[in-house]
Deep mutational scan, measured.
Amino acid sequence: MAAGGDHGSPDSYRSPLASRYASPEMCFVFSDRYKFRTWRQLWLWLAEAEQTLGLPITDEQIQEMKSNLENIDFKMAAEEEKRLRHDVMAHVHTFGHCCPKAAGIIHLGATSCYVGDNTDLIILRNALDLLLPKLARVISRLADFAKERASLPTLGFTHFQPAQLTTVGKRCCLWIQDLCMDLQNLKRVRDDLRFRGVKGTTGTQASFLQLFEGDDHKVEQLDKMVTEKAGFKRAFIITGQTYTRKVDIEVLSVLASLGASVHKICTDIRLLANLKEMEEPFEKQQIGSSAMPYKRNPMRSERCCSLARHLMTLVMDPLQTASVQWFERTLDDSANRRICLAEAFLTADTILNTLQNISEGLVVYPKVIERRIRQELPFMATENIIMAMVKAGGSRQDCHEKIRVLSQQAASVVKQEGGDNDLIERIQVDAYFSPIHSQLDHLLDPSSFTGRASQQVQRFLEEEVYPLLKPYESVMKVKAELCL
């Protein structure tokens, strides 16, 4: 049975990233139509530049190519590739079939990587351009969430054990800070992308030097003109047959890092959902379990974690691919890159769409948070109580021993009897502590235990987050809708 299948058929496997999760716009960027249309555009740009620099290419040939950029006979191309065992030459023939007058000058002087690699770089750039505003929107939604809850005390956790208090907004800023680093890295790697350009079979530009009869300047002009037509500021000066596969490492490393950030955020949300302090959106008709109707599973956060793990592992592909590119190139890269580049971007696209949807509907339960604080705060307040007693004339050592005994009794009630923490009640009825009984409410005010959390939130948002989001103001209103 021949390899390949009808990918629109229910009898043929289709990647869930495309069929179930990723956005239509990201799927289109990695589609065959987008790819092969870009090949034709690159052939047109090459012909236009070659004509401008004096090669015998007519206006009629150029116009014929322009008129057929979208006229792609995919069936013919597939048949040609089956016959020739070469995808680029299959599309040269297919393009030439609908451009008979231009057929002889299509791909003039070029090698397969002229269309293959340059198209990949265009796709990487455009895919990054799709991700950047999506990530900015996630940051914006979380920034709104953090600002609104900047002063809401909550129990902090280290080692997932109760620690000092923080605020809900401050905790959210930990998430935002990681995503801001990801946004900066995505922008950097996007701006650092260079075009492969017009380089020939081993990167020496020998074929173009021959076409222009040894004119170095025209060869350099050709490279520059096509690079500018493709919208790049610069091209690699040095290439082998391909652009260095280190570029793929750079791009997928940034995406993998984004995956790590999203995994951490969504894990926190899942843990908070278990504590009943916070939940992701839950639709009115949504079913959490087929057997347990009360369940409210954090399905979206779980999906993000599941896909983020996949995204983090994909960076190993370009690392290994770059390491086995012998001399000017081997074909070890080809099949692998067809999979890992598309999957990385479709996965990143999915987790950003999902995280935006989550961040637009996060639900906080202040009463649950308050109750958990009441359970733990008495123990945390013991040092403040000791200091207040010393100020009232008591002995630190005597007070410490009193607190120690009462704390152990209260802990026994919590752990052995399943009761509430009654340390404060014990202190309130103990005559030894009568000098500070009137101060206990103040000493137990949760806001006095959150330090500068709310001020940190305000400063972080104003100095770091809002300036970073400013270039994306025009796209901030787009909502994230999930079908599944």
Score class of each variant (00 low, 15 high):
A2D: 11
A3M: 14
G4W: 14
Y13I: 10
P16G: 11
L17Q: 14
L17T: 12
P24N: 13
M26P: 01
C27A: 13
F28S: 06
D32Q: 12
K35F: 05
R37N: 05
T38W: 04
W39M: 15
R40C: 03
R40G: 01
Q41G: 12
L42T: 09
L42F: 01
L44V: 11
L46P: 01
T52V: 10
L55F: 03
P56E: 11
Q61S: 08
E64W: 07
E64K: 08
S67G: 09
N68E: 14
L69T: 13
E70A: 10
I72M: 12
D73C: 13
A77W: 06
H86L: 00
D87Y: 02
D87P: 01
V88S: 08
M89Q: 02
A90D: 00
H93N: 12
H93L: 06
P100C: 06
A102L: 07
A103D: 13
I106Q: 04
C113E: 08
V115K: 02
D117Q: 00
D120E: 13
I122N: 04
L124A: 09
N126Y: 11
N126E: 14
A127T: 06
L128E: 06
D129K: 15
L131Q: 14
R137G: 15
S140G: 12
F145C: 12
K147A: 14
E148P: 06
R149S: 10
A150P: 06
P153L: 01
A163W: 01
A163R: 00
Q164V: 12
G169E: 02
R171C: 01
C172H: 05
C172V: 11
Q177A: 10
L179Q: 05
D182V: 02
D182S: 04
L183H: 15
Q184W: 10
K187G: 13
R188D: 06
R188L: 07
D191S: 07
R194W: 07
F195E: 01
V198M: 14
G200C: 02
G200D: 00
T204I: 03
T204G: 14
Q205V: 08
A206W: 00
L209M: 07
Q210A: 08
L211V: 14
L211E: 03
F212M: 12
F212H: 05
G214W: 10
H217D: 09
K218M: 12
L222Y: 04
M225T: 13
V226S: 02
T227E: 02
G231D: 11
K233L: 09
A235P: 14
A235D: 09
I238E: 04
Q241E: 04
Y243W: 05
Y243K: 05
T244S: 15
V247E: 08
I249F: 07
A256M: 11
L258M: 12
G259I: 00
H263Y: 05
K264M: 03
I265F: 14
D268Y: 02
D268A: 08
A273Y: 00
L275R: 09
E277K: 01
E280R: 00
E280W: 00
A291V: 02
R296K: 05
N297R: 03
R303M: 04
C305P: 02
S306I: 00
R309T: 07
A322I: 14
V324Y: 06
V324T: 10
W326E: 03
F327G: 09
E328M: 01
A335W: 01
R338G: 02
I339K: 08
F345W: 03
D349E: 07
I351Y: 00
L352C: 07
N357T: 13
I358P: 01
V364I: 08
V368G: 04
V368W: 02
I373F: 05
I373K: 01
R374V: 05
I386C: 09
M387Q: 13
A388H: 04
M389I: 07
A392F: 06
C399T: 13
R404M: 09
V413Y: 11
Q416C: 10
E417S: 10
G418N: 02
D420K: 05
N421D: 05
N421F: 04
I427H: 05
V429D: 12
D430N: 10
F433P: 03
S438T: 15
S438V: 09
F449G: 03
A453N: 15
A453V: 06
Q456P: 02
R459T: 11
Y466L: 14
P467S: 10
Y472S: 14
E473F: 11
E481T: 14
L484C: 11
